[in-house]
Design a protein around this nucleic acid. Structure first.
Length: 854
RNA sequence: GCGGGGGUGGCGGAAUGGCAGACGCGCCAGACUUAGGAUCUGGUGUCAUAGACGUAGGGGUUCAAGUCCCCUCCUCCGCACCA
């Protein structure tokens, strides 16, 4: 009775407040927290290494703890959780957890702005975001969480870095590096996007600094080869192509020009050795080492002019300098190089369009067959000599050509090689050049070594010290971690706070025991994210970054989910790490991520949700209003994972309505459903065609949902199938015991199949129906073959390809039988009377197409 | 410029070469209501009377094309002086 009163008053409230559309027939808030607590107490989602079981490692790109989750995170993790829950229910030993990529610049900026400390700011963000994640009901094994800014984690960054040093793939070099003045630090090549800083967009300039590099280029070929060998088809084509282009392999030859006046041999790389006879100039990057040597031999006035030119070019930002439309600037030096084939004197220029860090930083200029060289020569009046004519017989004229001829053709003006088609010319001329000692076959990559030094505080200290006596000395492994001081005030001083901390900087040399200084630069945070998944396998290990047996069992990741923006950053670094760790015997997989899913952006009002555009939707608010289940379901239903997803408040309500519909049905019919929950009626026991159809619907739903989730990762259609099942349940107006047994079967299947998407409401209803087990751990239903078989089928009849009728037929009729029966139909007879049947196409159980004439 | 996706109702989106538009949103009508922005039922590509036309546009292959082939347009994304 008290319950009834409450219920009625709720109904009244609904009358008055229902208009606000927030009155919930089901109390998602308490249901969701109830089940989150139960899962936690039952340790349901904790996984253990167990080689007797088939594993599945489901991984999501872990977040940067910026303060709060955004919808992009919610989307990413909702996709992952569905897969994790689905596979768990399908008997896999699932590793599914999360962590925080918690080093990096924003913490320093926030520390200045809010007068706090990066450490405190970061950890409090992590605490808040952890609450948000828990509130969403994701089935993480929280014991495995990895937080990269804690010494327990970053000490292994240092350790791995030292292993790389030992193997000779870590080195220090003074080089012109990408500099972001806003961030006050250098950037790796991959972090320069459209000539600007990937983080803040500031145009990047070059700066000469001594920095730490990792020789990722040693792995260029393998990184390239394995894209097609191991990542096809598990990775999206788009990402494979992006990485292939980024690595940028090209085959060609290296040749050299003697410069007698400077006693120097200048090397250049070309992919078009067949055009050597067309060389009319040589061009160097302004940063080339030869520039200094030239200046020494020039008159002071000329040297000064050259210096000014170099200064002008190098002060250009990379956008100004490398934009395809940018003006080509050159400076003619008084020096000549000797053409290696013809022996002619070739003038040497310095040009802004030559890049110091590709090839040798010098080129052979062939204006007739390279548009860039062509533009340059037209501007400075350098001669143009064609050495290839088009295959159609046209003869090119260097003085009259409107643009460079870059296509293949027939060699000319090339001595003994005249008449050869381009492909053959390239091979034969390089063969000849190698025999004559003029050139050498060479492969070049666009990929550069990974610059990992950052002039910042909030990162992993690079474990090296500088000793006046011993030089650069690695910190011994047993002295790790080199701890980052946490109690530090960050100020806007333009350099790392570590430089102002004598207690950090001053140390003793591990080698000689004398006074020494620590390296004050920290590591690029992409170092942290290159192996965190290994740590997930073996969390809390204090003796090693991870236990080999754990990693051998769990790795590689079976499904990785994240944004496309990491295609050429994180996803290349992590692949490189995998290869390195395997090479030193720590692991045995060579590719870390077997399958990759790149989810689309979350869009609102036609633009990516972002704080700067002010079009964000706060997940926490949405969860408060509709519950986690609704938000999860909406985000998975609104679009397939790889598409962009348009946020729609209306559709959120629609999704919420669907869950209410499910709730209402089960609650309103709970007694009946429980009463009849005892047996499954087999298909062959059912006579009524309506009931047989209903039974079939249950099982086709299982079949289709399973396929959509696992094979297609097409969650929107899986959810649509479940909505159809709900509609079917509502529509079955049959009060017989048989019907109730079936309805009970349908509801059980519905709740089970819906549970990966909406784990809370389904657990609650599952329990309401008297189940003793936890739905999250209950086995996924199996479609019963017999129940899938159709009794009858609708056969579409076409005449000349146009639909003219539909007929019910028993399933499984043979071609002839089906054709004869259809042709005998009076309706069809009437349609084709007086015409000749040319041909009849029969697709059993589906279609008959009658081709007629006349 | 090069490379890769896309283009289907009012909207998000479905369709192993075989009934285009599943499912949802929205909209329309009705029911229950004092009331409805709740719920339920029905309808909803376009034009029309039968029927025709419809998947960016044009051509082709096929008994049959949103789906395969060729051309064009539009759009999004990535790379962009890489020798």
């Amino acid at each position: 009775m008290p319950f009834l009163l409450l219920y009625n008053s709720l109904k009244h409230m609904q009358k008055f407040y229902g208009g606000m559309n927030l009155q919930m027939p089901y109390d998602f808030a308490s249901i969701e927290s109830k089940w989150q607590e139960r899962w936690n107490n039952a340790h349901c989602f904790e996984s253990h290494t167990d080689t007797s079981k088939e594993k599945f490692f489901c991984l999501e790109m872990f977040p940067y703890p910026s303060g709060a989750l955004h919808m992009g995170h919610i989307r990413n993790y909702s996709i992952g959780d569905v897969l994790a829950r689905f596979l768990r229910k399908n008997g896999k030993n699932v590793l599914y957890t999360i962590g925080f990529d918690s080093f990096g610049m924003p913490a320093e900026n926030a520390a200045i702005k809010y007068k706090t400390k990066p450490h405190d700011w970061t950890l409090s963000n992590i605490a808040y975001m952890t609450e948000q994640l828990k509130r969403m009901g994701y089935s993480y094994d929280w014991r495995r969480e990895a937080i990269t800014c804690l010494p327990e984690y970053y000490r292994w960054n240092q350790w791995i870095f030292l292993q790389m040093y030992k193997r000779g793939i870590v080195y220090q070099k003074e080089a012109p590096v990408n500099w972001c003045s806003t961030c006050g630090t250098v950037l790796a090549n991959e972090q320069v996007v459209d000539g600007g800083c990937w983080r803040c967009g500031t145009p990047v300039t070059k700066k000469n600094l001594k920095q730490w590099f990792i020789k990722i280029t040693d792995y260029a070929q393998e990184l390239l080869d394995d894209i097609e060998k191991d990542l096809n088809p598990g990775w999206p084509r788009r990402v494979r192509i992006m990485q292939t282009n980024w690595i940028g392999r090209s085959e060609g030859a290296r040749l050299s020009f003697k410069i007698p006046e400077l006693d120097y041999e200048l090397e250049a790389f070309t992919t078009r050795f067949d055009t050597v006879y067309g060389i009319t100039f040589i061009a160097l990057a302004p940063e080339h080492e030869l520039v200094r040597k030239m200046q020494e031999k020039m008159t002071p006035e000329d040297a000064q002019k050259l210096a000014e030119f170099v200064k002008k070019v190098s002060s250009q930002t990379s956008i100004e300098r490398s934009d395809a439309g940018a003006e080509k600037l050159g400076y003619k030096t008084p020096f000549y190089g000797i053409h290696p084939v013809t022996g002619k004197k070739i003038p040497i220029w310095i040009a802004n369009y030559i890049l110091i860090d590709y090839g040798t930083g010098a080129i052979m200029g062939v204006p007739a067959h390279d548009q860039r060289d062509f533009d340059f020569c037209r501007k400075y009046g350098i001669p143009i000599i064609p050495v290839i004519n088009p295959a159609d017989g046209t003869k090119l004229d260097g003085a009259a050509m409107p643009h460079a001829f870059e296509e293949d053709g027939i060699a000319c003006n090339s001595g003994q090689f005249d008449g050869l088609p381009t492909a053959e010319a390239i091979t034969k001329m390089i063969d000849w050049g190698e025999r004559e000692g003029i050139c050498k076959r060479e492969v070049n990559f666009k990929l550069r070594d990974w610059l990992i030094s950052r002039q910042r505080y909030w990162g992993t200290p690079i474990p090296f010290v500088y000793c006046d006596k011993c030089g650069v000395v690695p910190v011994p492994e047993d002295q790790l971690p080199v701890r980052l001081p946490e109690d530090v005030e960050v100020k806007e001083v333009g350099h790392s706070p570590l430089l102002d901390l004598p207690e950090f900087l001053n140390t003793t040399c591990p080698h000689c025991g004398g006074p020494a200084r620590r390296e004050a630069d920290t590591m690029d945070t992409f170092f942290c994210s290159s192996w965190y998944f290994d740590r997930y396998c073996s969390p809390g290990d204090t003796k090693a970054p991870f236990e080999k047996s754990d990693v051998d069992y769990w790795m590689p990741v079976d499904q990785y989910i994240g944004g496309i923006e990491h295609a050429c950053l994180h996803l290349i670094y992590a692949r490189f790490f995998a290869k390195f760790l395997t090479d030193i015997g720590l692991t045995k997989y060579r590719e870390p991520f077997t399958r990759l899913l790149t989810q689309g952006m979350v869009i609102k009002d036609g633009a990516k949700m972002s704080k700067s555009l002010g079009n964000t939707v706060d997940p926490t608010e949405m969860v408060k209003k509709y519950g986690a289940d609704t938000i999860r379901l909406f985000i998975l239903f609104a679009a397939p994972p790889n598409n962009d997803l348009e946020w729609s408040d209306r559709n959120v309500e629609g999704t919420h309505r669907f869950l209410n519909r499910v709730w209402r049905y089960v609650e309103d019919n709970a007694e009946k459903l429980k009463e009849y929950g005892t047996k499954i009626i087999a298909m062959n026991e059912l006579k009524d065609s309506k009931l047989r159809d209903f039974k079939r619907k249950i099982h086709t739903t299982i079949r289709d949902v399973t396929h959509d989730i696992y094979d297609e990762k097409q969650f929107n259609t899986a959810i649509a199938r479940l909505m159809e099942l709900v509609n079917a349940v509502y529509s079955l107006n049959d009060d017989t015991p048989e019907a109730w047994e079936l309805k009970r079967e349908a509801v059980d299947v519905l709740l089970n199949c819906l549970s990966p998407f909406c784990p809370h409401i389904t657990e609650e209803l599952w329990e309401m129906l008297g189940h003793q087990d936890m739905l999250s751990l209950a086995a996924w239903p199996v479609a019963d073959g017999e129940s899938l078989v159709q009794d009858s089928v609708t056969v579409v009849v076409q005449i000349n390809g146009k639909v003219r009728g539909k007929f019910e037929r028993p399933a499984g009729l043979g071609r002839e039988e089906l054709q004869a029966g259809i042709l005998a139909e009076k309706f069809i007879q009437d349609k084709i009377s007086g015409k000749d049947i040319v041909k009849v196409i029969v697709v059993p159980d589906k279609l008959v197409n009658i081709v007629v004439k006349g």
